[in-house]
Structure formats: C-alpha cells, structure tokens
Design a protein around this nucleic acid. Structure first.
Lengths: 342, 342
DNA sequence: ATGAAAGCGCTAACAA
DNA sequence: TTGTTAGCGCTTTCAT
C-alpha cells in the first residue's frame, strides 16, 4: 500500500518550499520554467493527486458532488431519469451521491442529513410518497437555507422555492382521456394507486377536464383510488363488473400491468371492449399482448434537464436569479390497446 | 442563507477557547459539568454539526463513503443489486457515490479516478463489458494499492485479488439446459449477446456440460453468439429456420424478449414446439405471454452480500484476512415457456 | 478545568 | 523567482 504523495513530499525532495511546489503545479507565472518542469514531471511520475478533502476545506472550490434522492429505482421512470442525471453529471465532472428514499419520509430526511455532512454542491430530489402525504418539507428548506441549491423533479411541492422540472400531468391526462373519448369510448374509468402524490392529483384533474368537455358527468365510482395494493384485484373487479365501462386510464405502470391482466381474465377484448392507456412508458408495456398505449414522460430528458439546471445554478452563482419551473412535454404513444381516431 | 456555525463561533460567544468547546462537545472528562452543559445546549440549539471535511482531513478517519460502479442501471439485475447495496449501506450510515460505466472501459476508469479523489472507504464494482474485453485492470489494482478495499460482483476477474460475489453461472446454465433436456427437448440452442463477458462464457460451458452428459453432440451452429444487436433478428431467424430445434436457452433478458417475439412470429408454439428458458429474472418475463421460465440470480441478495463483505473489510481492518469469493445460488423459476418434467 | 499550539494538505496574500 | 505566513475547522498533546 503506497501512501499518497503530498506537496510536502515533493517540496522536501527538491529542497524547495511547499508554496513553490503548489505554484509550480498550478502553472503559476512566477515560477521559473525549469523548476516548473522538473516539479511537474516528478509529480506526474509519482501520480501526485491533490487531496480533494484539503481543497474542500479551503472552501474555495466546490466539492463537485451532487446529491440525488429518488423514491424507487425499480420504477422505470426514475431509472431513466437517473440515467439522464448521471450522464450529464459525469460529463461535467460531477460525482453523484445517490440515495433511494424508498417512499419513506424518514429515510428521505435521514438521507439528506447524511448528505449535507458531506458538503454537496447541490441536490436533486423527487419527493417520497410519504413526504407528499406529510407535507413536511423542513429538511429541504434547511438545505436551501444553508445555501445548497435544490432542483426538484416530477414529484414537487409549491411550498419550496427552487428550480423544478415537471411534466404537464394535468394536460397529459386530459389529452389521453380525450384520445380515448375521441376514439369512441363512452365511459372511461381512471385507476390510481398514487392518489397521494401531487402528480396523481393533477392527472385526475386532467381526466375530469376531458370528461366535462365531452359533456359527460363526472362519476365518482369511475375514479378508482386504490391505496392498499393487496386490495387491487378485488376493488378493480367490482369496478370492471360494470360492463358499460369501455375505457381505462391507468396512472402508473405497475397498476397497468395488473389491470391488463385482470381485464383479459374477465373476458374483455382489448381494445374492442375496453381501451387502455397509461402513464409511464416502461419497456414492459410494449411487450404485453396487446401492447399498451402509453404516455411517455421522457424520463431521461427530465433527468438531464434537472441536472443541467442545477449545474447552471452551481457554476454561475446567481442567487438572485428567479427560480423557474420547466415543463417537459409528454407524448402519447399509440399501441394496440387503444383504437385509433379516424 | 445562514452559514454554518463552527467551534470558533461557539468559543467566542462563550469567551472560551476553541479547544474547550471541542472537548465539551466530545464530552471530555476534563471539562466542568456546567461548562459542558451550557455549551452542549447551545450547540444543539444552534444545530451545530461538525464539519466532516475538516474531520476527514484531520484523522485517517473514515469518510463513510462507498463507491459503486455498475454497468447499466436499466438492467433489472443491476437495479436489484443496487437496491440491495443501498439498503445495507444506508442502514450502516454509509453514503453511496454511484456511477454507471455504461459498459465503457474509459468511463469506468475515469469514474474510478474521480471517485478516488473523494477519498472512499471502499469500492463495489461489476465490470463493464469493454473492460472484460480489454482485460486491463490497472485502475482497479491501483485502487487496491492505495489501500482501498474492493468487492467485485457478478462480472469479476481472476486477475484482481479481492473479495467477490458471484452466481454459479456454469452450474445454472447446466441445470437449465438439463431441465430442458429432461422435459423432452432433443435439440437445444443457446443464444448469447454477452459472449464477451466472463459470465457469458461460463454459461456456455454449463450448457455444453449438460449436452455432453446427455450424450449429444455439441453443435457449433446451435451456439449463437450475436455481437451486434442490429443483426439480432436476421441471425436468429436463420438459426430458427432449423425446425428440429425445440429448446432455447437465452443468456440475458433483453435478448429473451426479442427471441420470444420472433419465435411466435415464425409460428412456433411455446412450449409445444420450442421451449425457452433464460437468465435474469426481470419483471417483464412473467408478463409476457407465454410467461418465460427464468433463472433468478437474486440480484438484491447479491448486492446485500457484496456490501456486507465490504463494510466488514472496512470496519474490521483486517488486511491479512484472505479474500473470499461467495457464490450465491440461483433458482430456476418454471413458467409457461417450458414443459414440466414428469 | 481550561488554553495554547501544532498539524492534517492546500492556497493565497505578502515579503524578500 | 521563491519563501513566509496565515488560515480553512477540527482534534490532541502538553502546559498552565
């Protein structure tokens, strides 16, 4: 185990001062070319690496470290977002300290506490479900107060003033429902297992807007909010026993998979008897049979946008620049589970 | 933006020395109880947090940070492994600095370079495809030489001496092939898009072993190694045009999905005409129709094992403890794509 | 019981 | 052109 070489080591081997070595390695103008050369060569030969910890202590330079907190990496949307974040981050020489909140408020808070110890340059977060229920954001406000910029994406809150990247959930749900209606559906139900989330609520709004626009009544029993996953099949079966339902909009991928299975099981034909659209365009949806039409949220792009905004904040230190919320457009990908509009 | 409070700040407000404050907060015996109390209270009230950077600079003390390098987070096996790693890490108060090598040698090297700057306590890595092709591991050896312990998982190399966690790839492939043969298959082909990987090669070995054991000839044309994904369909079509093939073992999830699609497209019935088994038990396989039998590698468990070994190395500083390789058992999950053994 | 001082690795005025 | 000094936040002898 060869220990790290320091400025001091180099200084003593050359019989010069530490400052000289420091300057030489930083290519300072007031060191003679010869000294610079020999020192630089020696440093390279001995794999000298400045000690980042020491540099960080001189709070001059940034730590080049960004914290990322994500609710669940098994969710394809977040996985894609993470890829986007990682991509841009590493291109810009940033490290990512990443945590999975696992939808838990406590883990989210603990995590951020831990992260702050490590002195981050910034933080990217998508809120845990529990946090959105609790509506307690002091851990984030504290972070902001310490001068660490935050960018929130997808699951955001109005209660924190920072940059945000979101999808137009309301409009997406609106146009998906609209599509269903246009394609001939007469009675569209909505399946939500994420009614606790900001995005879930917005999607319901969009659905309602479309229904209303088609002069149809908003029927509460068509809006199925399932909290406990255990009950999923049972609850959905009751809803689907109403044979006049001919369209389904699912707010999230996992539920879509189960719903599709159940619909087929109950003997309905897709899309002839029932059309299905869903949010989050995971790989799995295109491989189901029938393949499921989906609203793509462009996760990777969202991630890239979020990290770009953050890096921008960090590098062009502009505390007064007003916070902005970027809206990323979704796209509806039509597949076999919906009828096309003539 | 309230700036962080330091020992110095506390010292001046109480008119004592920095050393006193430090000791008081560390509950040192040689500080009077009264002083300790008032200082501790004040510190708590003002949310004093010791500056980790300073602490790190000072002592050899650990950074409580572990680097994780993964080839691709969209791969369900690695995603699961990451969940396992994150889980145990955060339970033990470790932060994760994570990078996606994206199968690139260069990115892997750059990443590790970057990570080392940040002073890690340890590193967990699964090798990039390119790295396994290049067989150049100096970046890892250097890391080890600097005294940073490494645990490798899944994609490992014999050329680096460190702790490892792997799956018994050879035996898994052997028993999957064996299962196919036992269930009545007469001619089993193997589809690999990962022949560059250590695990890919081992799986081919296992396949061959089973074939031989059934006194069947090993036919090269039944071992389909596809490098370029573009050619996938074309190459596979040629192979599948041989109608005597009645069993398929796919070494990886994505290829399985495409293979299944193609098999159906070509009019074969699964499993009546062709049985299919594959490696990596992603969610998608159970939702295809027919659902695909798979070898589960227990990704989460592997991740947990890897991080546990690493933390053990870090905390019980035992440089002389011999390195071990843990083998995690796989399980074959039978689904609709294979016939059962009577 | 408390404090002064040194030092971790490095940078940046300021001197020489 | 090079060196001296101070200091980033903290711990830790060693005095007092």
């Amino acid at each position: 185990m060869k220990k790290k070489i320091t400025l001091k080591d180099i200084a003593t081997t050359f019989g010069v001062s530490i400052a000289t070595v420091s300057k030489a390695l930083n290519d300072s103008y007031d060191i003679s070319v010869t000294t610079k050369q020999k020192i630089q060569e020696y440093a390279k030969a001995h794999h000298y690496k400045p000690n980042t910890i020491a540099l960080n202590l001189l709070k001059k330079s940034k730590t080049k470290t960004i914290g990322v907190v994500i609710p669940n990496i098994m969710n394809s949307f977040f996985a894609k977002a993470f890829v986007g974040i990682e991509n841009i981050a590493s291109q810009n020489g940033y490290q990512l300290v990443s945590c999975i909140s696992n939808e838990s408020y406590e883990k989210e808070v603990k995590t951020i506490e831990l992260l702050k110890h490590g002195d981050l340059d910034g933080l990217i977060i998508s809120l845990a479900e529990e946090t959105q229920i609790k509506q307690n954001f002091t851990h984030l406000q504290n972070t902001l107060d310490e001068g660490i910029p935050i960018v929130m994406f997808d699951r955001v809150t109005e209660n924190i003033a920072c940059d945000k990247v979101i999808v137009n959930d309301m409009e997406s749900a609106y146009s998906a429902t609209h599509h269903l209606l246009k394609s001939g559906c007469k009675r569209v139900a909505l399946i939500s297992i994420i009614d606790n989330l900001s995005v879930g609520k917005l999607r319901v709004e969009g659905y309602k807007k479309a229904i209303t626009e088609f002069n149809m009544p908003i029927e509460d029993r068509l809006i199925v909010r399932i909290g406990n996953h255990e009950d999923f099949d049972a609850i959905l079966k009751v809803t689907l026993s109403d044979k006049t339902i001919d369209g389904l909009i699912c707010l999230e991928e996992d539920a879509t998979v189960n719903t599709t299975k159940l619909v087929k099981q109950m003997g309905y034909k897709i899309p002839e008897d029932i059309s299905i659209v869903c949010f989050t365009n995971g790989k799995i949806l295109q491989h189901l049979s029938p393949s499921i039409s989906a609203i793509s949220q462009h996760g990777k792009h969202i991630g890239e946008t979020a990290i770009s905004m953050l890096i921008d904040r960090i590098e062009n230190n502009t505390p007064n620049k007003p916070f902005i919320t970027k809206m990323v457009k979704t796209s509806l990908i039509e597949r076999e589970s919906t009828k096309s509009i003539k």
